[in-house]
Design a protein around this nucleic acid. Structure first.
Length: 242
DNA sequence: AACGATATCAACCGCCATAGT
DNA sequence: AACTATGGCGGTTGATATCGT
């Protein structure tokens, strides 16, 4: 017997999936993940879509190393709240709970290692960067803190910025979520006209057409004025941060 | 240059809370 | 009130990158 869960795709997201998800989140907002997952035809669970959005695709996410200030804040807040990552993340705009969690993990590992082998005069010099915690480490490192950020692109890695750029530059072949959507700081208004020449979009539409009656009624319940009002972040905020 | 160790990051899993029926 | 579906959270794992020898 095949588990229902097994029918869903797992593992790393592809560029196409990302584009698709971004577009459908623009359309339906970042709340109804199960619905977005179904309608987009992504063959992912709603949870998976949410995670991808929250941790990677959400506009306004900062990428790259934490600044010393951020690191200090993480330390402080963790001392205060413990492993309440999402709570801590809310105090660090642009950082996700996952990111902070990961950071803390490595941070704690370093610390544990230092405890294991207490400072010797020799080790302290070689260890200067990792000793007395990461704050010091990154204080030094972050001289050019974001130096490695663009490296990803050079390696052929497709950043969201690249995706956005491609969306912008390309013609009708690629879905253009943003051009037809007007965002303001307070709200966003939608005037979305799907480019039907996109194969991706077509296949997604197909999945919409193939929805059962229940889903269809759900779909129709999305009055135009209910469209993604929860989506507060315009693209400008994203690119200004990348 | 090769190899092992370590660090980093993305993604999944399981549990819990909450809203809807 | 009980049940179900969904979303959110924290913990964990696995893949990849980077570093050190």
């Amino acid at each position: 017997m095949k588990n229902v869960q097994d029918q869903y795709r797992k593992g790393p997201w592809t560029e196409q999936e990302d584009i698709l998800l971004v577009n459908f989140v623009h359309l339906f907002g970042d709340r109804r993940w199960d619905f977005v997952a179904k309608v987009s035809g992504l063959n992912r669970t709603g949870k998976s879509c949410r995670l991808r959005w929250v941790n990677y695709l959400h506009p306004g996410l900062k990428r790259g190393k934490m600044s010393p200030q951020e690191e200090r804040l993480v330390l402080e807040l963790h001392a205060k709240w413990g492993n309440r990552w999402s709570k801590i993340a809310r105090k660090l705009p642009g950082r996700t709970d996952n990111e902070i969690k990961n950071y803390w993990r490595t941070h704690m590992r370093k610390k544990a290692q230092e405890k294991k082998r207490p400072m010797s005069p020799t080790s302290s010099s070689s260890n200067c960067c990792s000793s007395s915690m990461t704050t010091a480490t990154t204080d030094q490192d972050t001289g050019g803190s974001n130096g490695n950020m663009n490296q990803e692109c050079e390696d052929g890695y497709y950043s969201m910025d690249d995706i956005w750029r491609e969306i912008d530059q390309s013609g009708a072949n690629i879905i253009k979520p943003v051009k037809d959507i007007y965002y303001s700081e307070q709200s966003c208004y939608l005037n979305f006209t799907p480019p039907l020449t996109s194969p991706t979009w077509e296949s997604s539409l197909e999945s919409i057409w193939n929805m059962d009656a229940a889903d269809e009624s759900k779909m129709s319940s999305f009055a135009i004025d209910q469209f993604p009002l929860s989506f507060q972040h315009g693209r400008s905020s994203w690119s200004s941060l990348v």
